[in-house]
């Protein structure tokens, strides 16, 4: 059982003193939720879990330890590992200080979709074991319940890891014809519809910055959005300023975003905000053939150039 293996690895690491603490997920206080967990004590490793509700990208917590000495073991899904790889590339943390417990990921379940498809379902009725989902005792296909970003996943296996718990999956749902890519839905809209959609969503944004704070790659000490001199956007959640905040953030993610969807999942008013950085990640993949977080030695696409880059948009 994967969970047992994770706990065993975590236990050993702590017991032998190889790491100072483990960062993983534990069961949440509400149904179909997990919460990030830090284990400093071997006894706490019993609380570690691994299931399709482990939505948080734990690479986000590495920023606390920048410049420190602690050795950290981190549980990583495919996209979490890609985020770690970007942090390594950007020299936010040292590889020697990390032990990565890699978890090939079958995709995250969106709790909303789960409840829509199976009204009145209780946590006890959902079983998950080694890639097989059973709901009320019956085997179910996870693809109808996936989180948006997971429908576009191309790297379910952690590209960097020290341990690997479970079998490598090879390809993600991006390859699968059963799954509709989340972005396709927005791509199919006419430009007017999309504009309208975003205008409405930006009116709902309360500028809580959960999206930014959940993102593993938004680690700035002072974010442009909160800078007062100069002030780029109003701190008040005016619709246009909300949009500019998102545009600014999305531009900062260009060539870095690992398409984990953590930003979108964290939004308290359910704005699927991850589509912006993910759209840019897609356009960077198409234009420059670059995918972020696969190789720590890579150069980010916006930190380099080719003399024959496209320029037909320039007069």
């Amino acid at each position: 059982m994967y969970e047992d293996k994770i706990r065993k690895i975590a236990w050993d690491l702590l017991e032998k003193g190889n790491v100072d603490f483990i960062i993983g997920w534990e069961k949440g206080s509400l149904p179909f939720l997990t919460a990030p967990l830090i284990c400093r004590d071997v006894a706490e490793t019993e609380r570690l879990v691994w299931n399709p509700f482990c939505a948080n990208n734990l690479a986000r917590y590495l920023k606390y330890y920048k410049g420190g000495k602690e050795k950290i073991a981190l549980c990583v899904k495919g996209c979490d590992a890609r985020a770690v790889s970007v942090l390594l590339r950007e020299e936010q943390i040292e590889r020697e200080r990390l032990v990565l417990i890699g978890l090939p990921c079958h995709g995250l379940i969106n709790p909303k979709k789960l409840l829509e498809n199976f009204p009145d379902i209780t946590p006890g009725e959902v079983e998950w074991e080694e890639g097989i989902l059973r709901i009320r005792g019956k085997e179910e296909n996870i693809v109808h319940l996936l989180e948006g970003s997971c429908t576009r996943c191309r790297y379910p296996d952690p590209p960097i890891h020290d341990f690997l718990v479970g079998e490598k999956l090879g390809e993600g749902y991006a390859e699968s014809s059963e799954v509709e890519d989340m972005l396709e839905y927005y791509d199919k809209m006419s430009t007017e519809e999309r504009e309208e959609f975003f205008a409405r969503e930006m009116e709902r944004c309360i500028r809580c910055y959960a999206c930014r704070n959940a993102c593993p790659l938004c680690y700035c000490q002072e974010c442009f959005a909160e800078s007062t001199r100069p002030s780029w956007v109003s701190p008040a959640p005016l619709a246009f300023d909300n949009l500019l905040f998102q545009l600014g953030r999305t531009m900062h993610m260009a060539g870095r975003c690992v398409e984990c969807g953590a930003c979108g999942r964290s939004c308290p008013v359910e704005i699927p905000i991850d589509i912006l950085p993910e759209k840019v990640a897609e356009s960077i993949r198409k234009e420059f053939g670059f995918e972020s977080g696969l190789d720590t030695g890579e150069t980010a696409p916006l930190l380099t150039y080719r003399e024959d880059d496209q320029e037909d948009f320039i007069k």
């Binding site: 430009t191 309208e196 260009a254 420059f288």
Partner: peptide, 14 residues
């Protein structure tokens, strides 16, 4: 490069 990415995004957003 930077402006191409930005322009694509802005146009996609209408």
């Amino acid at each position: 490069r930077k402006f191409m990415v930005m322009k694509n995004l802005l146009e996609w957003l209408g």
